[in-house]
């Protein structure tokens, strides 16, 4: 439970509101992409309309309650019980205003949904409960790296249930639906790191405290020229590092860490620690020794042998690797976990 003392910290409360003022407008976080400018302008338009109408409705209501409050001996005045001209007026005015809002909302939406033809393309794989990003040269990462001031098209797919790719600072959101590809795009205009959230409820696991609310990542927006360097660097993981270290890198990059620990604790899947050379029992197969062939099969066809005490929920990684050395590197990494 929280400490009750915190509730009385008036200064803490104040600092929160100061923070709110510093980071973006009152209602919206700081915009960091061109899409945010589109959305924010429509947001401000609607906010203005809402404020006017709310003040009008509640203002009149309060005014009438005060002006026409019940007084002894005073009866309600005779006033007409309908007025066609007035009623048509207050039908027509909201129709006109809502058409204006609709128009700007739709116009902005077309921008959000129409990636430029020259956009850089990144594949996004969603699974319970991690994001993986793959670049045109095959590099895979846990965080989304992009260059500043360049349109980026993201193609979304899901390995299991529906997830949703949400970057509040860019004001973009698109569902990752299993069995189909959805796309969205953005052009970041501020360098830095921005949050990615999953916005479609996708469950959780108590075993390793993973779930919908921990399915988070970052967009890393690089300065001009830096993105290419980063990508070059990443492409060579197998060449640039010894196999076991490269395997560790790949273990993080492909999202294995979401389900497989390296410290012996069971998550959604069994831990990798100390399994090399052990003989394991399976709910759908005969006992097998953990060797190169078993590990390779478990990565590429995880449902063939489902470890006793676990549910078979792992998606296949067939076709996800850049080359065979990557699988080899992961096997070496597991081997190294004594």
């Amino acid at each position: 439970m929280m400490q009750m003392g915190e509730l009385h910290g008036g200064s803490r409360m104040l600092s929160a509101w100061e923070l709110l003022g510093q980071s973006g407008s009152f209602w919206l976080p700081p915009p960091a992409a061109t899409s945010a400018d589109v959305v924010d302008s429509v947001f401000q338009l609607i906010l203005a309309v809402c404020t006017v109408f709310f003040v009008l409705i509640v203002g009149l209501m309060v005014l009438f309650v005060i002006m026409y409050r019940r007084r002894d001996g005073v009866e309600a005045s005779d006033s007409p019980s309908h007025n066609t001209a007035l009623e048509i007026m207050w039908t027509a005015v909201p129709v006109a205003i809502s058409m204006v809002i609709f128009y700007y909302g739709f116009k902005g939406y077309l921008d959000l949904r129409t990636p430029p033809l020259n956009a850089y393309e990144v594949q996004v794989f969603a699974q319970k409960w991690s994001w993986t990003f793959q670049y045109p040269n095959g590099v895979v990462s846990e965080e989304l790296h992009v260059p500043v001031d360049r349109p980026v098209r993201v193609v979304l797919s899901s390995q299991d249930v529906i997830h949703s790719f949400f970057v509040p600072a860019f004001r973009i959101k698109m569902d990752a639906v299993p069995g189909r590809y959805n796309q969205t795009w953005f052009q970041a205009r501020t360098e830095g790191k921005f949050d990615i959230y999953c916005a479609e409820y996708c469950g959780s696991s108590d075993k390793d405290s993973q779930g919908h609310s921990s399915m988070l990542s970052k967009v890393v927006v690089h300065a001009p020229g830096e993105f290419e360097n980063w990508l070059e660097d990443q492409a060579n993981v197998v060449k640039r590092l010894p196999p076991a270290q490269a395997g560790e890198e790949l273990y993080k990059r492909y999202g294995c860490a979401a389900c497989h620990s390296t410290d012996g604790s069971a998550r959604t899947g069994p831990s990798f620690k100390g399994i090399w050379g052990e003989t394991h029992e399976f709910s759908n197969s005969t006992p097998t020794k953990v060797d190169e062939n078993y590990l390779r099969e478990s990565i590429l066809e995880p449902m063939k042998k489902i470890r006793s005490g676990f549910q078979g929920v792992m998606p296949t990684f067939q076709g996800r690797f850049k080359n065979d050395q990557e699988i080899r590197a992961i096997i070496e990494f597991i081997k190294s976990l004594k």
Binding site: V39, C50, S98, I101, K173, E200
Partner: peptide, 23 residues
């Protein structure tokens, strides 16, 4: 209901709904 109804405008409008959906 005034607030509930008016805030529906943010959600009926396509561009703003993309940001606000599922929040």
């Amino acid at each position: 209901f005034g607030i509930g109804g008016l805030t529906g405008l943010f959600l009926g409008s396509l561009a703003t709904d993309v940001h606000l959906h599922d929040t």
